[in-house]
Design a protein around this nucleic acid. Structure first.
Lengths: 344, 344
DNA sequence: TTCTCTACTGTGAACGCTCACAGCGCACAT
DNA sequence: ATGTGCGCTGTGAGCGTTCACAGTAGAGAA
C-alpha cells in the first residue's frame, strides 16, 4: 500500500513537494521555484502549483530546506540578564513583543533563550552555533563575554544598547541615552531647580554610563557646579532607588531635584522622599527614565524620558536581517522624548 | 581537495557525524547510538566517541535529525491574548521564564509566538502544524478557537488555565482560582468585614468565572446574603479596576471590603477609593489576586492571593512533554496562598 | 530552412542524520 | 560439533528539500 493511500483517524503524514508536483502536473523543481519566488516559471505552471498548494494544504518542511540551504530561518532572542531584572523591567515585554512581530512579518520564528546560569549560557551558545541564523542580544553588563564570543564565531548579531568594552565592531540599536538625560536635566533646570542630584544606573551598563554623562554635560552647560555628592549609583531596582535616594538626602539635604536613570528606581526614590517628608514635586522634583508602566502607576505620576522601544525592536530586526543578508554591521541610535507628568 | 582539508579564515563547515566516526575509528551508526543514549555500545567505543565529540566540537544537526525522526524537538509558546494584557501582566514574564528554563533542561528550545491579529494567528497555526512537537497555550478567552483547532489537528497541547467551553479533552494547568477566592473572602470575613464586594475578571475567562464562583460560595458559607449590586465585572486592567470600584461605591456606599480578581485592577480600585476619600484598610479592605509586583508597589501594599507561577510553568512543561511522549492529556490544579500585607 | 538565444522544465545528487537490517564473534546449552 | 542467543557493529536506504545542470520548445535572426 503506497503511503499516499493511507487513511484513517491517525495523524496522516503531511503532503510533500512531490504531492504538490503530482497534483499540479509539474515537477518538483518547478514547485520549488514557485516556493522560492516564482522566477522562471510560466504563468500557467505558477497557477497550477499555487492551487495545488492550496488544495493539498502543503507547507514546506523547513527541516529539509534548512538541511540543504544551511540556513535555519530562525533567530534567537538571547537574554543574559540576571533574571530579576527581566522580571521587573516592563521594557523587555515591549521589546520582545516588537521583535517577535517584526520577525513574524518575515516568517521567521523567534527562539527565546535565557542565560541566567553558566550552564544555560553554555547550552545556548552551543545551540546558537549552527542552529540559528542570527541573534538579538539583550545583555547590558559589560563583563558579559557573549557578544564577543558570538561575533567571533561569525554569528550575525545585533545588541540592544551599545555593548561596552567591545573592541570588535558589533551592531547595536540604542536609544539616545545621553541626549535623553540632557533633556531631562535641562527641563529640571528650566523649571527652576538648582541642586539637581542623580541616581544613575550601574556603571557597567551602557545606560548607566551614558545617562550619567548626559547629566554631567547638561549640568555644565547650565553653568551648575559639578558635585560628586549629588551622584549616587543605583542598580535599576526599586529597592536600589530607595536606598540611593536615602543616601542622596543625607549627603545633600538641600536637594531640589533628582534625575533617576530608570522609572523603577524612581519609584523607590519617591518612596524615600515620602518617608523623609519631602513633597514631590514641590520640594523635590523627580525625573525618571523609560516611560514604563511604572511611570504611570506612580503617585505622583512620573515625568520621564520615553524610550522608543517599538522602533528599537523594529530596527534590531531590520539590522539583523540585513546582516544575515550579507551587509555590514551597523549602529542605530534613536531619539528619546520627554514625557511631562506630575513629578517634575 | 576533500572538504575536510578546507582551511583558512572563513566560517568552516561544522563537523558531521562522519567526522566524529572517523576520528573515533567507528562507524556512523555507533556514533548515532552514543548520541541517542549509548545503548548497545561497548565501553571502549563509547569513550572513543565521546572524546572524538569533544575533540571535533561536534554538535548534532537538528535539521537532519528532525527530517528523519519527524520530531522537531522544539515547542511553541503561543500567546493569543490581545497584546495589552501581555504588556501589563507581569505574570506572563514569570510564566515565560519558567517555561523557557524548564524546557532548556531538556534541551528543547521555546518558540515564542504571538497571535494578536488574525493574520498572525493563521501564520502561527500554519507554522505549528508540522514544525513543532507541542504547544504551550496562553489564551484565556473562551471565544478563542485555537485550542480546539490544535487539539483537532492532533498537536500535543497544554493550556495555562482551564479552557472554557471546550468539549474535547485538552490538558491544562491552573491555579486553584476558586479556592484562592474563597480564602480571600474568608479572610475578609474573619477580619470583621460584612459588606464585601468584588471586582471580577472578564466572565469569558476561566479566572473570571472561577474567582467569582469562589467569592459567591464563601459568602454563602459565611452566611452573608448574596447581593448582585456588590458584583462588578472588570477587564483585568488598572483603568478597568478604577471604573469598577467607582460603580461599586455608587451602588453600595456601605461597602467595607472588596475582593478584586487581579492586582492590577486592585491598583485601580485603590486609586478610586482614595479619590472617594475612603481609607484603606480602615474604611475599606482590599484584597487582590496574583501577587504580582504591582501588589508590592501599591500603596498600601496589597494583601493578595499568590499564584504559584513557577510551579505552573514547570507543570505545563512536564505535562506537555509527557503528552508528546504518548501519555494522555491531564489536568493539574495547584494550590494558591494568601499573602497578607497592608491593604486588608 | 537553420541557427541561436531565451524562457521554461525535469532530473539526479546532495544535505546529515536515524533506522532497520544483516553480520560478526563469543558464550553457553544441546 | 551444531545450534541458539546476545551484545555489538557497519551498511544502505531514505527523510523532503534545493541546486546545478541538461534538456526542450518556441521566437526571432540569418
Amino acid at each position: 500500500m503506497s503511503r499516499t493511500e493511507q487513511t484513517g483517524t491517525g495523524r496522516r503524514r503531511p503532503p510533500t513537494i512531490h504531492d504538490v508536483a503530482r497534483e499540479a502536473g509539474v515537477s518538483r523543481g518547478t514547485v520549488s521555484r514557485v516556493l522560492n519566488g516564482g522566477h522562471n516559471v510560466s504563468p500557467a505552471a505558477l497557477d497550477a502549483v499555487n492551487s495545488a498548494i492550496r488544495k493539498t494544504g502543503y507547507t514546506v518542511n523547513r527541516h529539509a530546506r534548512s538541511l540543504i540551504t544551511g540556513r535555519s530561518d530562525s533567530v534567537a532572542f538571547l537574554l543574559t540578564e540576571p533574571q530579576e531584572r527581566f522580571f521587573e523591567d516592563p521594557n523587555f515585554n515591549v521589546l520582545l513583543r516588537g521583535c517577535t512581530s517584526a520577525l513574524a512579518a518575515h516568517d521567521i520564528p523567534l527562539l527565546l533563550m535565557i542565560a541566567g546560569t553558566e550552564a544555560e549560557r553554555r547550552r545556548n551558545m552551543r545551540y546558537i552555533a549552527g542552529h540559528v541564523d542570527g541573534v538579538l542580544l539583550v545583555s547590558s553588563h559589560s563583563g558579559d563575554p557573549v557578544a564577543a564570543q558570538l561575533h567571533e564565531a561569525g554569528v550575525p548579531l545585533v545588541a540592544c544598547g551599545k555593548p561596552l568594552g567591545q573592541k570588535s565592531k558589533v551592531s547595536y540599536v540604542a536609544a539616545d541615552d545621553r541626549d535623553g538625560a540632557r533633556d531631562m536635566v535641562r527641563f529640571l533646570y528650566e523649571s527652576g531647580r538648582r541642586r539637581i542630584g542623580t541616581v544613575s544606573g550601574p556603571l557597567d551598563t551602557p545606560g548607566g554610563v551614558e545617562r550619567l554623562a548626559g547629566y554631567r554635560e547638561m549640568l555644565a552647560d547650565c553653568g551648575l557646579p559639578a558635585d560628586d555628592a549629588l551622584i549616587v549609583p543605583g542598580d535599576y531596582s526599586r529597592a536600589g532607588g530607595e536606598a540611593a535616594a536615602g543616601l542622596l538626602l543625607e549627603r545633600a539635604p538641600d536637594l531640589d531635584a533628582v534625575f533617576v536613570a530608570s522609572d523603577l528606581m524612581a519609584q523607590g526614590v519617591l518612596a524615600a522622599l515620602e518617608k523623609a517628608g519631602r513633597r514631590v514635586p514641590q520640594d523635590v522634583a523627580v525625573g525618571g527614565f523609560d516611560d514604563s508602566p511604572a511611570a504611570l502607576a506612580s503617585r505622583p505620576a512620573l515625568t520621564t524620558i520615553r524610550q522608543p522601544w517599538d522602533r528599537i525592536s523594529a530596527e534590531m530586526v531590520r539590522v539583523l536581517l540585513a546582516q544575515i543578508g550579507g551587509e555590514d554591521p551597523a549602529a542605530v541610535i534613536l531619539p528619546t522624548e520627554l514625557v511631562r507628568r506630575e513629578s517634575a
